[in-house]
Simulated assay, not measured.
Amino acid sequence: MDFLRLPKRTTGSRSYGLTSIVDFGTPVGELKHILGDYHQFIDIAKIGIGSAYIAPNLKEKIKLYQEYGIRPYFGGTLFEKCYLQNKLSEYLSWLAELGIEWVEVSNGTFDIPLEERLEIVSEFKRDFWVIAEVGSKDSECDMPVTEWKQEIDYFLNAGCQYVITEGRDSGTAGIYDQNGRIKSNLVKNLLEELDDKKIIFEAPTHKHQMYFINEIGPNVNLGNVKLADVLILEAQRQGLRSETFYLEEQEWKLPL
């Protein structure tokens, strides 16, 4: 079918317009069925929090994602746990053994000085693609806009492929207030000076996702998407939901 005028979407091995899902323990059998139908809508898979460390059938799950061209990595909480216990070298060895090519450097739970995180990125990028996360999981922590901009800029210049804006799976921290409202002034300020194609906005709910689609366009990078929501999200991106209905009329275009 190809008779409707829809917003232009990036396809194939995308570098932006990414959908990054969060896997909080989907059984491998169930995952096979989901990816069989919806893999074309998923680019990155985060095995959430520190669950990868105790997940059964982890190697099989990683292989399954990779067979469908999806890039798996482990949540930043596991990185922070390894940092706290001085086990980063063991962590990297384990990732290499598992065939994981992406690693997250975060600061959401355990406070790691910015300078040290940047040094870690410089070390990790020798062998891995690095994603950094900016923002705290503490809903009462309110970083100034200048600090958000500075950290994102520093991480991109340090060699990170993408920077994630913290939002938690609940959408109640980081770029959201504790009631789940989007800090729209913060987002607009970030977009004024930074390349949105290098930022993954955590958007765990349909409301959050539709905000970013309408604000930035159908090819915004979105993270912490639930596996069950990937088809709905793609429909939203393509103007097939009431709240994004007029996207094609705005003539969103891919760069030449």
Rank of each mutant, 00 (worst) to 15 (best):
R5N: 14
R5T: 09
L6E: 12
L6Y: 01
K8V: 07
R9L: 15
T10E: 12
T11Y: 04
T11Q: 13
R14Q: 13
S15T: 15
G17A: 01
H33A: 03
L35W: 07
G36A: 09
Y38V: 03
Q40A: 12
Q40R: 13
F41D: 07
Y53H: 08
P56F: 08
N57G: 06
I62N: 06
L64C: 04
L64V: 04
G69F: 13
I70R: 07
Y73V: 01
F74M: 11
G75E: 06
F79W: 11
E80N: 05
N86D: 11
K87F: 04
E90Q: 12
Y91S: 04
L92C: 14
L92A: 13
W94V: 02
A96K: 14
E97Q: 14
G99A: 05
I100V: 15
I100W: 00
W102S: 02
W102L: 13
V103T: 15
V103K: 00
E104D: 03
S106W: 00
F110G: 00
F110D: 00
I112N: 00
P113M: 00
E116F: 10
L118E: 10
V121N: 01
K125T: 03
D127L: 12
I131T: 11
V134A: 07
S136R: 14
C141T: 15
C141K: 14
M143Q: 05
E147A: 12
Q150F: 15
E151A: 10
D153L: 09
F155Q: 05
F155Y: 15
L156N: 11
N157P: 01
A158P: 09
G159N: 09
C160Y: 05
C160W: 02
Q161S: 11
I164C: 00
R168M: 07
D169M: 09
S170T: 14
G174D: 10
G174C: 10
D177L: 12
N179Q: 14
I182M: 03
I182E: 08
K183Q: 15
N185T: 13
L186P: 08
L186F: 10
K188R: 12
L190P: 13
L191G: 13
L194Y: 09
D195L: 04
K198T: 04
I199M: 13
I200D: 08
E202W: 06
K207Q: 13
M210H: 07
Y211H: 07
I213F: 05
E215W: 12
N221P: 08
L222H: 04
G223H: 09
K226N: 07
L233I: 09
S242Y: 10
T244R: 02
Y246N: 15
Q250S: 09
L254N: 01
